[in-house]
């Protein structure tokens, strides 16, 4: 990338894109495409749809370059466009009725105590996730969550959007977003417990 600072470099890149420089388009696709593909995959769940999303996202971005504001980061802007494209894809896709996650939520006794006695996990999660097999396992469990719970968890806990932004993108109230996220986290905990708990199946 030469000796230019990242900011200068990005400003120059945007200028080239606006001029329709073919090499600049290719550079952007190569530089950011992998990250966008991962985000899309996480939201839509299938490779084929994720590829469509990445293509839609880049095309949308390239068409609206004049709306890119100089004070934003190109990566953040592209990322936001990809998340929107992925959510759009989910909405237009024919969906099976969503499975209830009630059975994955904790149960309580009449006196208000948890029904289950929680067994502590074998090792801290950051240590367990030093191993790729465990990272893959967590990704599989996230992918197995019903769409409406997976999307809220991905946007808020993984992509790091705040609750208000997440609510806006999903067309939910802030309160509904919090409730859904809480349920998604609780369900995911239940799904991870047999793998990370001391009582391995």
């Amino acid at each position: 990338m030469g000796s230019a600072t990242p900011v200068d470099d990005e400003t120059a890149l945007i200028a080239q894109l606006r001029k329709g420089d073919e090499a600049a388009f290719e550079r952007v696709v190569r530089q950011y495409g992998g990250r966008l593909l991962a985000v899309a995959r996480r939201i839509v769940g299938t490779e084929e749809d994720a590829r469509d999303v990445v293509q839609d996202a880049f095309l949308n971005a390239f068409k609206s370059l004049d709306r890119f504001e100089g004070n934003a980061k190109l990566s953040t802007w592209l990322h936001r466009i990809a998340v929107n494209a992925a959510l759009m894809k989910l909405r237009t896709r024919k969906r099976k009725p969503e499975q209830s996650i009630d059975t994955l939520l904790p149960g309580f006794q009449d006196d208000g105590h948890f029904e289950e006695r929680f067994q502590s996990w074998e090792e801290p999660v950051d240590k367990a996730l030093e191993r790729e097999e465990n990272r893959e396992l967590v990704r599989q469990q996230i992918d197995a969550l019903p769409d409406s719970y997976r999307t809220v968890l991905v946007l808020r806990d993984i992509e790091g959007l705040d609750t208000e932004e997440t609510a806006k993108m999903l067309g939910l109230s802030v309160n509904a977003t919090k409730i859904r996220l809480h349920r998604a986290r609780q369900a995911l905990r239940t799904m991870l417990a047999p793998h990370f708990g001391s009582a391995r199946a």
């Binding site: 991962a38 996480r42 996990w121 801290p124 999660v125 950051d126 996730l129 465990n134 990272r135 893959e136 396992l137 967590v138 990704r139 996230i142 968890l153 991905v154 806990d157 993984i158 986290r185 995911l188 905990r189 991870l192 990370f196």
Partner: peptide, 11 residues
Amino acid sequence: MTIKAGKIACG
């Protein structure tokens, strides 16, 4: 740990 696991696994 569940919140952290998602971040690490998909980060």
